[in-house]
């Protein structure tokens, strides 16, 4: 059973899957979370922007490879990566969180650059830390690590431990 409602979330109940733009909308500890598929990611975000969520405050990702049993609404398949976008509607003073499942074998997501130019640096950070590529990103380079760094540190299979110093063209 599903019902189309606005993000007020007033009509939500436990066994009812609420849909927003055809995507399941979940209440997570009083916060609105929308599960968007990768194919409809740009389209839904464009619709949401028109609805007032004009500000993208945060874009990050999670590597769920060691926690695949996480709770997801029906119809959403758990994948290794999740891109998490936090939207803000300044006039209505509400927030909305978008979670996009990104598979391990094809870690790429469309870039939000055209919609929210401020995500440029955040997407570069996610690429740097997780190796998730953002197609049509204007400057797809590493942002935090040196450009010749190998690996993506925030992936769960990347070791935390200290490693020897990597020099790049330093005078010895």
């Amino acid at each position: 059973m599903s019902a189309e409602v606005t993000t007020d979330g007033t009509e939500m109940s436990e066994d009812e899957v609420t849909l927003l733009h055809g995507c399941p909308l979940v209440d997570s500890r009083g916060q609105q979370v929308l599960f968007v598929s990768r194919d409809r990611y740009l389209e839904v975000l464009r619709l949401l922007t028109d609805e007032g969520f004009a500000m993208c405050v945060d874009l990050t990702a999670v590597d769920y490879s060691r926690f695949m049993t996480r709770e997801l609404p029906d119809g959403v398949t758990a994948e290794r990566f999740e891109v998490v976008v936090n939207l803000l509607d300044i006039s209505a003073r509400r927030r909305l969180r978008i979670r996009v499942q990104v598979p391990e074998n094809d870690p790429s997501v469309p870039s939000l650059f055209d919609l929210h130019p401020g995500t440029e640096a955040m997407e570069r950070e996610v690429f740097d830390m997780f190796g998730i590529a953002f197609s049509d990103h204007p400057d797809p380079s590493r942002i935090l690590m040196p450009e010749d760094w190998i690996g993506h540190p925030l992936r769960k299979d990347y070791e935390t431990g200290s490693i020897p110093v990597q020099f790049k063209g330093a005078p010895s």
Binding site: S108, F134, S135, S141, E147
Partner: peptide
Amino acid sequence: MTMIANEGAQE
């Protein structure tokens, strides 16, 4: 769709 992002120069 798939794009190998270049780990290019940051400068």
